[in-house]
């Protein structure tokens, strides 16, 4: 089981802030493909990966990163702090 979190417009498009997912996806990209295949709202949210960022266990990462041992994955748009 893995916790998947969504922020900003990713959260709005998918319609929930977080969920627990049973997955055997080896990488972030494979998890994204699984999610996109679920429902249209996921396909819309993940349509353009270049406009998304991913964090694994609260550290910025990349879509080709492995998921082994990861407990928390977060997807969000580029950050706008400050």
């Amino acid at each position: 089981m893995i916790d998947v979190l969504y922020f900003a417009w990713v959260r709005e498009r998918i319609g929930l802030p977080r969920e627990r997912i049973e997955t055997a996806a080896p990488t972030v990209a494979a998890l994204v493909e699984e999610l996109k295949a679920r429902e249209e709202r996921y396909a819309l949210a993940f349509a353009d990966l270049a406009s998304l960022r991913v964090a694994l266990d609260q550290e910025l990462s990349s879509f080709d990163a492995p998921l082994a041992g990861v407990r928390e994955v977060a997807f969000f748009p580029p950050m706008t702090g400050g």
Partner: peptide, 26 residues
């Protein structure tokens, strides 16, 4: 610190105006 806070701290701003709301683009 300011430069890093802008693009590397996980905050997202949404502007609420009279005509609706919009996420601020990086």
């Amino acid at each position: 610190l300011m430069d890093y806070l802008k693009s590397r701290a996980p905050f997202w701003k949404k502007e609420i105006g009279a005509d609706g709301a919009e996420w601020v683009a990086a």
